[in-house]
Computed example of a mutant assay.
Amino acid sequence: MRYRHLGRSGLKITEITYGNWLTHGSQVEADVADACVRAALDGGITTFDTADTYANTKAETVLGQALAGERRESVEIFTKVYFPTGPMGANDTGLSRKHIMESINGSLTRLGTDYVDLYQAHRYDYATPLEETMQAFADVVRAGKALYIGVSEWTAPQLREGAALAKELGFQLISSQPQYSMLWRVIEDEVVPTSAELGISQIVWSPIAQGVLTGKYLPGQTPPEGSRATDTSGGQQMISSWMRDEVLERVQQLRPIADELGLTMAQLAVAWVLQNDNVAAALVGASRPEQVADNIKASGVTLEADVLSRIDDALGDVVVRDPRKTDDVSPKQRLT
């Protein structure tokens, strides 16, 4: 397992990072979650990502329990704040000072730790002055409750403004967590070059496009039973945009490329995002320990230029590239 620096900081994280969105506390039982975390640790992963909103706080609790007994200094624990939690009252969401301060305390309790290595703004909050948000993050850092601050799904101008305020307040933004995969490349034109300039790295989610890039979904066929595409608790909705025959047909054209390289299609997909110099880590989740072990093998894989070109040709015009779609995922009004 290889490590990469996160942004322009001294923090090193594993380039394959374990995330528990859509799994812990919802899709899988606690004993399976424990087994997946153990498989990650056994495979050399030391970096774990979660959020207070995942399974309405249950995912943090499950991760904390799974990591109990590990030497705290030997793992990197990331979580996030923004989306509604608890009873979802008027102040149970967003990036107000009130919500941030209450949320970090709740996250630390559930995770069973005195601090998180990275605390992330899960979305941009249009309903709260950015100055208020960044001052709250500065105070969280000074209180020792988070070592570093990052964001998720912020546009290039938002990153620039946030980084400037952070600098004024005596800390730095070091990471951005966007969706990124062979099929979803909206960060490449604006977010990535801006981040590189500002000393911010990407921790990318959904590098396998919700499982579509594994090749297990075949055009014209019913999704496999028990797969994310059949999960009515949230997975089915998230994957629906990719479940079109034109996409699935293109994805199947990646299989010969993976076979020639001795990789599974999932490994090829994870390795692909790691070819981007601005990507510090690929977030992978799992509902079974063997999935973790499989994804770990993508660490250290180099894809030559001709392979990257063949991938582009295979996927053609089903790739989404519009940079405006980054802003589309941040709600324009407070969620309640």
Rank of each mutant, 00 (worst) to 15 (best):
D231Q: 08
A286H: 02
F78T: 14
T85L: 13
A138K: 06
V319E: 04
E60S: 06
D231Y: 06
Q27I: 01
L159P: 04
S74K: 15
V270Y: 03
K58C: 02
A35C: 01
N20D: 05
A40W: 00
G170V: 09
P223L: 12
A146H: 13
A258W: 06
V284F: 00
L118K: 09
I77L: 11
A30P: 03
T155R: 01
A55S: 14
A35H: 04
S181D: 04
D317A: 13
K332S: 11
G316I: 04
R185K: 05
T50K: 07
D31M: 06
L147H: 15
V75A: 05
A143N: 06
A39R: 08
V273Y: 08
T302N: 09
R160T: 15
K325G: 00
E15A: 13
P157S: 01
A136E: 08
K12V: 05
P323I: 02
L213I: 07
W154Y: 09
L315N: 08
K216V: 00
G162A: 15
M243F: 06
G19H: 03
Y126I: 09
D125C: 08
E15S: 13
P84N: 08
E304A: 15
T46C: 07
P129I: 14
N20S: 03
F48I: 04
A196K: 15
K145Y: 05
Q135L: 12
Y115T: 07
L335C: 03
A271S: 11
L111M: 05
Q179A: 09
H122S: 10
I104L: 14
D327A: 14
E260A: 15
S287W: 02
E260L: 09
D34H: 12
L283Q: 01
E190L: 01
Q237L: 07
Q177M: 12
L263T: 13
R334D: 07
T47G: 11
A298F: 03
E290A: 10
V186E: 15
E260I: 10
G64M: 04
